[in-house]
Design a protein around this nucleic acid. Structure first.
Lengths: 195, 195, 195, 195
DNA sequence: AATGAATGAGCCTTCATTCAT
DNA sequence: TATGAATGAAGGCTCATTCAT
C-alpha cells in the first residue's frame, strides 16, 4: 500500500467519522459509508472489512489526538489551580461538543463489544490516564498548599466519574453549559484551600 | 383484550426483558422476541407493534418498580447517615447488577431517541427525583448536625453524576464491587462531620 | 339459519359494500370487512368464506335491484323518445354515481375471474338485457315513426358499448356530467327523425 | 449505470410485461417478477423499487410504441375511408389481442391510482389524441364528400367511447372477432355517404 | 486499485384461516 | 352462534459481501 492508498484510507476515515457522529455505531452500515465517501462498494472493502474495523480506527485516532492536546499551552509557572482548570475546560469541551462528536458511537461500540478485552482497552487506558493525571495535579496542588485533599487518588477517581456521568447525561438527557459550569466549579471549590 | 391477554402481555415483557438485557436495544429484533417467547410472529404483533413499543413498556415498569422500592424498610428513627447509606446501597445494586439488567439497552434506547422529548422524559424525571431525594437527605443531615455541606443541592447533583458515571463505566469498562465501595465511601466521608 | 342470521347477513353485506366501494375488489381483506362490521373474525367466517363470496353476493343484489328499477314510473302513453331518455338517464346516474358505487370493484372482480363462466354470467346477462331492452325501444320507436334506424339491434349494441365506454372512462380518466350529457344527446339525436 | 444495465432494465421490463399480462396489476408481486426474470430479489431492487415503478415504465413504453405505429403504411392518396378503416383495424387488434396484453393491468393500475393526476395523465392524453385524430379524419372525409357527419368532434368522441367500451367488454365478458367487426362496420356505415 | 452489479440471507409486517371457549 | 387469540405463510425491503471486469 503506497502513499496514495494511505491518503485514501484517511479520506475514508474522515468521511466515515461524520457518519458515525450522526448515526451512532450500530446503525451505521457499509452502505452509509460508501455513500458518504462517494466510492464504490468494492472499493471500500479494499481498505476496511467492516464498520467495526473502520470505527476502531477512528476511535484510535480520536484517542491519540486527544492525548496530544492535553499537554501544551500552559506556561511552566502556572498554578496547579490553573492547570486543573485547564484540564476541566478541555473535558467540558468534550462533554458539550456537537460536531464531529463520536461519543455516542463510542458508547454504543463499547456496549456492543463489552467483555472483549482488547476492544475496550483503549478507552480504559484513557480513563486511567485521566485518573493519573488528576492525581498528580491534586498531589502537587496539595504539596504547594493550593489544594486541600486527604486522598488525592480517591478525589481523582471521583472527578473522573463525575466527568463520565456528565458526558453520558449530555448525550442522553441533555445538559446545558451552565449546568456543566456549576458542577465543575463545585468540584474545584471542593479542592481549593479557602474551604 | 381481557385478563388473559394481560397475562400474556406480561409474559412477553418478561421474556423480552431477558432479550434486551442480553443484546441491548438496537440489536434486538422482533424475531428474537418471538423466539424467546416461543410464540408465532403474528402472535407477537397482536400485543406489540415494534421492539420500541416493547422496550418502552419494559422501561416504564422498570422505573415504576424502582421508585416503589426506595421507600420502605428504614426504621423511622434512622439517622440521616443510615438513610444515605441505604440510598447508595440501592444505587450500588443497580450499578453492579448483572441479571435482568437493561441498563445498556436503556442507554442505547436513549441514544437512538435523543432529541425526542417524551422518549427520554421518564429517565430525566428519574434523575431529577434522585437529585431531590439526595438534597432532602443532605439538608436534613446538615440540620441534624450529622453532615457538613455548604450547598446541598450542588452536592446532590455531584453525587448523581458520580453514580451515573459509575453506572456507565460498569457497563463499558467494567467496575469491581471494591471500586464502587471505595467511591461510595469517599462520597459519604466527604459529608459526615468528622471531616 | 333463522331470521336473525339472515338479518346479520344483510348487515354484513351492507357494511361490506361500503368497503368495496372505497377500496375496489382486490385490495379488500377479510380484516377490512370485519372491522367495518365491528364483528369478530370468526363471526364473519360463519357467514362468508372469503371476500369473493361476499362480493358475489353484493353484486347479485346490486344487479337484481338494478333490473327492478328500470320498470316503473313511466306513464303508459309515454313516447318512445321519453322512454329512451329515461333509460339513458338511469344509465347516466350509474356512470356518474359516487356513493355506494361498486363499479370499480366489479371490473376488478371480473378481471380477476375472467374466463370463469359463472362468475361473469350475471354481468353478461345484464349487458345482453340492456341490448334487448334498447332494441325493443328502438324498434317500437321506428314503428311509431319517432326514430329513424336501419338496424335496431346494431344501434342498440352500439349504444351499450358507448355506455360501457363512458362507465369505464368515468372511473379511470374522470368524466364530467356535461360530457356525459353531450354524448347521450348525440346518441339520441342520431335516432330521432329530424335527422 | 452503463449500457449493460440499460439492457438489463429492458430485459426486466420485457419479462415483467408477461407477468402483468397474465396476472393484472394488483396481483403482481416483486417476487413474481424476480422469478420471471430469474434474478435475485436484491437484484431487482437495483433497477426498480416497486411493482408500480415497473408497471409505469412498461405502460410508458407501450403508449410510446403505440403512437409510433399509427403513422406509416398508408399510401398518400388513400381515401379517408381507407384511413379510417386502418385506424379502426389497429384498434381492433388492440381490443382482441391476447399475447403481451396489459389492458387489464392498465385498467387495474388506473383504478388503483384514480385521483392521482399524473398517474393517469398518459392514458388521458392517449384518449384525447384518439379523439383528435378521428376528428381530423372525419372532417377531411366530410370535406372530400366521402363522409356525412354533422358534428365531427361529437362523432369522434362517440367512436372513442365505443372502442373503450369494446375494449373493456373484451376483457370482461369476452368479445368475438365477429362481434367487433359488426360493430366497427356499423360505425363506418354510419359515416359513409351512401347512408 | 477500483468498480458496481449481483446474490441471498434476514428482518419486518400483514393476512387468511383455524380453534378453543 | 360468536369471539378473538394464535398460527404460519407470503411478500416487502435492506444489507453485507463477493466477483467479473
Amino acid at each position: 500500500m503506497g502513499e496514495k492508498s494511505e491518503l485514501k484510507r484517511e479520506y475514508i476515515l474522515k468521511k466515515a467519522k461524520v457518519v458515525f457522529a450522526h448515526k451512532g455505531y450500530r446503525a451505521v452500515t457499509m452502505k452509509d459509508i460508501v455513500e458518504a465517501c462517494e466510492i464504490s462498494r468494492g472499493g471500500l472493502y479494499l481498505y476496511f472489512g467492516s464498520t467495526e474495523d473502520i470505527f476502531k480506527e477512528i476511535l484510535k485516532l480520536e484517542l491519540e489526538s486527544g492525548s496530544e492536546e492535553g499537554s501544551g499551552n500552559l506556561s511552566q509557572d502556572a498554578s496547579m489551580t490553573e492547570i486543573l482548570m485547564f484540564f476541566l475546560k478541555e473535558q467540558k469541551k468534550m462533554i458539550l461538543r456537537k460536531k464531529q462528536d463520536i461519543t455516542i458511537a463510542t458508547y454504543e461500540y463499547m456496549f456492543a463489544h463489552r467483555g472483549e478485552k482488547d476492544s475496550t482497552e483503549m478507552i480504559r487506558t484513557q480513563f486511567e490516564t485521566g485518573v493519573m493525571v488528576l492525581t498528580k495535579i491534586i498531589q502537587e496542588g496539595v504539596e504547594r498548599g493550593e489544594f486541600y485533599c486527604a486522598n488525592a487518588k480517591a478525589e481523582a477517581n471521583n472527578i473522573m466519574y463525575v466527568l463520565e456521568g456528565m458526558k453520558v447525561c449530555a448525550k442522553t438527557l441533555g445538559l446545558s453549559e451552565r449546568k456543566v459550569d456549576e458542577e465543575l466549579l463545585y468540584l474545584v471549590s471542593g479542592l481549593v484551600m479557602e474551604e
